[in-house]
Design a protein around this nucleic acid. Structure first.
Length: 428
RNA sequence: GGAGAGGUGGCCGAGUUGGCUGAAGGCGCUCGCCUGCUAAGCGAGUAUAGGGGCAAAACCUCUAUCCAGGGUUCGAAUCCCUGCCUCUCCGCCA
């Protein structure tokens, strides 16, 4: 959410931002509603003052043993009028809020301008794409041959998009998660959080998933609880409605969670194997930062995420997302993509975003620089570090051998009981 | 799931026959004074949001806020209803 005062004072900046993000939001209507709102507030507060004055008078009269009937009668009318105006005000404010909720965050000046992903700018590319002197298998065939992934049975027990990991596949998944969390905790100074995977509406609103993305999420209707699409939601909301102290910033949390996405509207797109699934695992980093440091932290967050790929010895590239491709709440975002030799294309394995104070304002996460300083909103950032599903695609395909086995990257071997290769179980 | 208790300011904690109570008192914190240092002591201050005034800040003023929403009333932290949360006991399950 943007600051209403800012919108009032900079309507052109906001209108431009809405266009850049391909969003629809009626700024003129917001301004008009704001005008109405303030005028009603003026009126209603005047009435309330009168009412309060009169009530006090009644108390005095009664104490003095005099008759207050006339004042009471007069005040009754005032109260009635104030009540009606309050209702009108509530109505206006509700409309204003629903308009405000549709206004996206303003893209940062360093985000490349452009209406869709074709305008994204590659800012970094490392490693050579793997070359094979045999025909590389895709992750699905590899998974089947080695009997470590089972998409068919996942479909049976849950539905398509719910993969099953087996044997060394399950072990590898767990190894990746542990390796990533350990690196962030031990080397990058993160505090580990193991959050709930189900959250309430307020939390979904706080990080900006609601109201826009309600249909993309699984909802347990009986309890009005949502399955989280990312650990960003519970972890960012950890400090919802809180006042932090300046000296505790930055706060860096890392959390593993399963992530659930309905992917409504993308049926038939990238449906093979791990490319687009309804449940996947992700290690997420969340930062709460001083406003003036958030862009520095954004770059740092990117490095912390890509270090995983350096250590796994996987080639990747980094894109700076164009304004039109940025998510609703983001001011700036880097996507990290890893290479799939079988698909011959780049796969998004991480998104690293700076939301500035957009989420903080929605979720009311503030801080004081020092005792007695006025409250300010923190900046929030987050980055996948990383999502395992597509990472698994690149990993299996890149590290495969001509025997149909998969070499385990050295950094993961301690997590794999010292094994250096995944073979068929009966080949052992 | 059944029965009961409760949700007040950064914290603790008064206030429940409705009326200067934004809210006693204490702790904490900030500033000042004082004692050779520390401790103790003394004095003052110490919420947030919104509206209006001011070119703007300082500041002034008003409104709202005692879990949330609704109701009764001239007037509610105090009475009534609903919801949420916490705690205790019983049952059930891991």
């Amino acid at each position: 959410m943007l600051d209403l005062k800012f919108i009032r004072e900079n309507p052109e900046v906001v209108k431009r931002a809405v266009d850049l993000k391909n969003e629809k939001a009626d700024i003129d209507r917001v301004l008009e509603l704001d005008r109405q709102r303030r005028s009603i507030i003026n009126e209603v507060e005047q009435l309330k003052k009168e009412r309060n004055d009169n009530s006090r008078k009644v108390a005095e009269l009664k104490k003095a043993g005099e008759d207050a009937a006339e004042v009471i009668a007069r005040t009754k009318e005032i109260s009635q009028k104030a009540k009606e105006l309050d209702e009108h005000l509530a109505d206006i404010q509700e409309k204003l809020k629903s308009e405000l909720d549709r206004i996206p965050n303003i893209p940062h000046e360093t985000a490349p301008e452009g209406k869709d992903e074709s305008a994204n700018v590659e800012v970094l590319r490392t490693g050579d794409l793997p070359q094979f002197d045999f025909e590389p298998l895709d992750h699905i065939k590899l998974g089947e041959r080695l009997d470590i992934l089972d998409f068919k049975r996942g479909g049976k027990i849950s539905g398509s998009g719910f993969p099953v990991y087996k044997g060394m596949g399950a072990r590898l998944e767990r190894a990746l998660i542990n390796f990533m969390i350990d690196l962030h905790v031990d080397k990058h100074g993160y505090r580990e959080i193991f959050p709930p995977f189900v959250v309430n509406r307020e939390s979904m609103y706080g990080t900006g998933q609601l109201p826009k993305l309600e249909d993309d999420m699984y909802l347990a209707e009986k309890d009005d609880l949502f399955l989280i699409p990312t650990a960003e939601v519970p972890v960012t909301n950890l400090h919802r409605d809180e006042m932090l102290q300046g000296e505790e910033l930055p706060i860096k949390y890392v959390a593993y969670s399963a992530c659930f996405r309905r992917e409504a509207g993308s049926y038939g797109k990238d449906t093979r194997g791990f490319l687009r699934v309804h449940q996947f695992n992700k290690v997420e980093m969340v930062n709460f930062s001083l406003p003036e440091n958030s862009y520095e932290m954004h770059e740092q967050l990117l490095k912390e995420a890509t270090e995983i790929l350096d250590l796994l010895e996987l080639p990747y590239r980094v894109l700076s997302l164009a304004t039109g491709d940025l998510s609703f709440a983001a001011a700036k975002c880097y996507d990290i993509e890893t290479w799939s030799p079988a698909e011959q294309k780049w796969l998004e394995t991480s998104s690293v975003s700076n939301f500035e104070d957009f989420q903080a304002r929605r979720a009311n996460i503030r801080f004081r620089r020092e005792k007695g300083s006025p409250p300010e909103f923190v900046h929030t950032l987050n980055g996948s570090g990383l999502a395992t599903s597509r990472l698994m695609v690149s990993l299996l395909e890149t590290w495969q051998t001509d025997e149909g086995t998969v070499v385990i990257p050295p950094v993961l071997r301690p997590y794999m009981g010292g094994r250096d290769v995944i073979k068929k179980e009966y080949d052992k």
